[in-house]
């Protein structure tokens, strides 16, 4: 394992040297750190989530842990609500964020078992100018076919990295959720309580299949 890590680190370092080229020192450092963050997260996720023999309950726990540790869950949840966040009471905000987390876990946990054997290759990194870095990657499928483009928007602050958006083939997870949730709120007279009801029913029905 440690051999593999150091090999990876070496490969990464040379890859970074190769790609970073003439970019100024500090900016390149930020990009390199974001690249390593995504590389190591992909590694961890594959280790923890793709094994069929791990019981599903255990996989759910692992996924929830990885999700909270590596995604800006509350920040994303807040951005999705947009102006309705201001209208929500403290209790509604807490309940909404908890349900949002449940929905993400229930929706995505099983997708990883299908990812066994897939490889993630980072193609480039681009700073956004607001302190975030977009890490562009391609997921290569063992079955063949064109690779899937996945861009990771990584927020960087005080040496910590958190994913704020995942963009698959040009479609952003956060933007899609914002449209989806926003539509539910509008159809419930602009009330966050309406969204919370729908979210609760959705996560309950998804949990039945868990």
């Amino acid at each position: 394992m440690s051999d593999r890590r150091s090999f990876l680190a070496g490969a990464l370092a040379s890859a970074t040297l190769f790609f970073a080229g003439p970019v100024a020192g500090q900016a390149a450092g930020i990009e390199e750190a974001a690249r390593k963050f995504i590389e190591s997260l992909a590694d961890k996720a594959i280790q923890a989530l793709t094994k069929q023999e791990v019981p599903r309950r255990e996989r759910i726990e692992r996924f929830r842990h990885l999700f909270n540790e590596n995604f800006a869950v509350a920040g994303i949840g807040r951005w999705i609500l947009g102006r309705y966040w201001r209208k929500a009471t403290a209790r509604q905000r807490d309940e909404y964020l908890a349900l949002f987390e449940d929905l993400m876990v229930a929706s995505y946990v099983d997708r990883f078992t299908e990812y066994a054997g897939e490889r993630l290759t980072i193609t480039k990194t681009v700073p956004t100018g607001d302190g975030a870095v977009i890490v562009f990657s391609e997921i290569i499928r063992p079955a063949g076919g064109p690779p899937i483009r996945v861009d990771w928007r990584v927020g960087v602050k005080d040496q910590t990295h958190k994913i704020v958006d995942v963009i698959v083939e040009g479609t952003s997870m956060s933007t899609t959720l914002r449209s989806d949730f926003g539509s539910i709120i509008r159809r419930n007279g602009g009330k966050v309580a309406g969204l919370i009801d729908v979210l609760r029913k959705k996560t309950e029905s998804l949990k039945k299949t868990l």
């Binding site: 800006a72 869950v73 509350a74 920040g75 994303i76 949840g77 807040r78 951005w79 999705i80 609500l81 947009g82 102006r83 966040w85 201001r86 905000r93 807490d94 964020l97 681009v126 956004t128 607001d130 302190g131 975030a132 977009i134 562009f136 861009d151 928007r153 927020g155 602050k157 910590t160 958190k162 704020v164 958006d165 963009i167 040009g170 952003s172 956060s174 933007t175």
Partner: peptide, 25 residues
């Protein structure tokens, strides 16, 4: 994708940096 609106970047109160959200919410 670099020009897309996204969480944690804009300066207004609804889209703070993710860590504000983690603490404040």
């Amino acid at each position: 994708s670099a020009n897309m609106p996204a969480p944690g970047l804009s300066k207004n109160s609804i889209s703070p940096t993710p860590w504000d959200g983690e603490e404040a919410s």
